[in-house]
């Protein structure tokens, strides 16, 4: 029981941290919003693990659902909604945002 919880928390924590880094690095804004919602969903699962089921329900509904909806609508409204057909390695990450304008 205890050891299983530790492994689940380790997995979820690594998933959330990598998704959080991906939010700052990925170039496509839709993918960034999706990664932010992955962080919120992992947070809801961690709340269940920490014996806070009501907070987990609210986080999953409001933090992951409503917030992602707001951000996705904002992406559409700001004119950043674009889906590339072909994905190469250089088009995936926004590492050199200084050189070209941040897409």
């Amino acid at each position: 029981m205890g050891e299983l919880e530790i492994w689940i928390a380790l997995l979820l924590g690594l998933m959330m941290l990598s998704a959080a880094i991906l939010v700052l690095l990925v170039k496509n804004h839709i993918a960034a919003v999706a990664a932010a919602s992955v962080v919120s969903l992992g947070l809801a699962l961690l709340f269940v693990l920490m014996r806070a089921p009501d907070v987990a329900m609210t986080e999953a509904a409001v933090g992951a659902g409503l917030s992602s909806l707001i951000l996705a609508l904002a992406v559409k409204r700001l004119g950043l909604w674009r889906i590339e057909g072909k994905i190469t390695r250089s088009s995936l990450l926004a590492t050199n945002t200084r050189r070209e304008k941040d897409a």
Partner: peptide
């Protein structure tokens, strides 16, 4: 917009 997303992560 990416700064707004960073704010979401810090809040989480």
């Amino acid at each position: 917009f990416r700064r707004v997303l960073a704010l979401v992560i810090a809040e989480a």
